[in-house]
């Protein structure tokens, strides 16, 4: 019995501290949205907050970069984000063009600042 628990423990942890604390917001959203009119002023505010959360996540991922992205200097990461956004604006507000423009800047800048293209 304890052998099974030990083997399944990582999965139990995944459900308890990964799945449930995240899913609770989706389910709460289902409950709260009941009776909210899609054209209400409340939703305009809620949508603005959700948009701001997204913008905040973008900023945090770039400023406080995870893993290998931290090897690339902050100036290059910020420049890549700006160049991606400019490419998006210039090329018909295309998300794909924006992502490609930003990635090109990021790869060139990262390479020039010495981030390895070799497998460690």
């Amino acid at each position: 019995m304890s052998g099974i628990v030990t083997e399944l423990w990582p999965y139990i942890v995944l459900i308890l501290v990964g799945y449930l604390p995240n899913e609770v917001w989706r389910m709460l959203g289902v409950a709260v949205s009941h009776g909210v009119d899609e054209n209400s002023e409340l939703l305009i505010w809620v949508r603005a907050v959700a948009t701001a959360v997204l913008a905040g996540v973008v900023a945090q991922l770039v400023v406080d970069a995870p893993g290998a992205l931290a090897l690339v200097p902050l100036s290059v990461r910020l420049a890549a984000l700006a160049i991606g956004f400019l490419t998006f604006l210039v090329i018909k507000r295309s998300v794909f063009a924006g992502v490609m423009g930003g990635q090109a800047a990021m790869l060139i800048g990262g390479y020039l600042s010495g981030v390895s293209l070799m497998v460690p």
Partner: peptide, 15 residues
């Protein structure tokens, strides 16, 4: 390689 890993991680903020 590290540079490609970094590029993979940059996809989320850009998109």
């Amino acid at each position: 390689p590290p540079l490609l890993s970094a590029a993979v991680l940059m996809l989320t903020p850009l998109s």
